[in-house]
Design a protein around this nucleic acid. Structure first.
Lengths: 186, 186
DNA sequence: CCTAGAATCGGAAACCGTCTCCACTTCGAC
DNA sequence: GTCGAAGTGGAGACGGTTTCCGATTCTAGG
């Protein structure tokens, strides 16, 4: 799987330059840039870009992998420091708030999740895993119903991610999370 | 608004041919066909296609306008024949079931809803309107909370629509609706 | 330090779907 | 039947994506 193949020095430098430039551009809100231009702006050739990241989604995923991993990690921490139901609530609310502050992540996530499951990248899987754990802890605790799976929650998050860029979506996103949380109570 | 401009006979014939062919192809599951090919298959020129439907979304919307209108109509009927909470439940469950039997509608809806609100076509607006009415009736009745708007429910439906094509999504979609319905109870 | 050969680069050019444009055709009112 | 308006159709421009391969750069071995 994750066979860490040793990358040649210049190759790694280029890869990092691409990631750095992509991160910078995403932060500025430039998402719909020509894929080629990432290469030009990062100072590498088109071929190099395509060798490292076969498509736009792969680049976005690489950029946001760490950020998403951090959020998941936070979810796991919450589970060990709060009652499960509260941990779940805090995690989901925080997650949605974070999405609204990071459109790039929201877009990337929406894409990751709408892809076919067999394509579903590590990021998506990890998120599902964390939610599954939080739900299971809640079930053990007796505060969360046991007849709804993480997939259902993920589906709502997908809706939230997709709608994230729209003007008045923040309030509705919070509303959706409220519904899910109240609906999850046993 | 709906200034019904009289279309010339041949123009109407071409438009209908395009719609018929699109409907047929969507029913077969061909969504990612080249846009030009719709024209060729319907026996008209590319220019004609573009005059009638400026882009893929416009064609899809036209194909599914009636179907969506029917569903909305059904929602309004339910509201007059059932207690509001039940009407809402029946409507949402039926809606999701219908989506899973009609991928084309699901895709179209996902696209309609992810567009910017000012672009949000009649179909999307009408759906939001129906849900608003159902919620309001439930609030009047005292069975539905009053602090969550239709937008939140729509956001969940967006997630469901987007995920609709995936293998195991039916169960999760039902789960998501269950969460919403239970979460909506006062 | 030098060399060979493997890994990587870069960007020109092929590719492919989208969309426009306009010379030509068809319609239908008179 | 005539004429202007409405509509047609498809060639080709356009622009983003992706490939391909000769040139370049790296690194291990001597």
């Amino acid at each position: 799987m994750t066979t860490t193949k040793p990358l040649r020095a210049d190759a790694r430098r280029n890869r990092d330059a691409l990631l750095a430039k992509a991160r910078e551009l995403f932060a500025e809100g430039c998402f719909d840039l020509r894929f080629d231009d990432f290469a030009r702006l990062a100072g590498v050739g088109t071929g190099t870009l395509y060798r490292h990241f076969p498509n736009r989604a792969a680049l976005a995923e690489a950029v946001y992998r760490e950020e998403l991993a951090g959020l998941c990690e936070r979810g796991r921490t919450l589970r060990t420091t709060l009652p499960a139901a509260e941990a779940l609530a805090t995690f989901l609310r925080g997650f949605v708030a974070h999405l609204h502050g990071h459109q790039g992540l929201a877009r990337t996530l929406a894409n990751l999740m709408s892809a076919q499951p067999d394509t579903l990248a590590d990021g998506g899987r990890e998120l599902e895993q964390v939610i599954t754990e939080l739900l299971a802890a809640g079930v053990d605790e007796g505060t969360v119903r046991d007849d709804v799976s993480a997939g259902a929650v993920l589906m709502v998050l997908q809706g939230v991610s997709t709608a994230c860029g729209q003007p008045g979506s923040r309030a509705d996103a919070d509303g959706a999370v409220t519904l899910v949380l109240d609906g999850l109570r046993r």
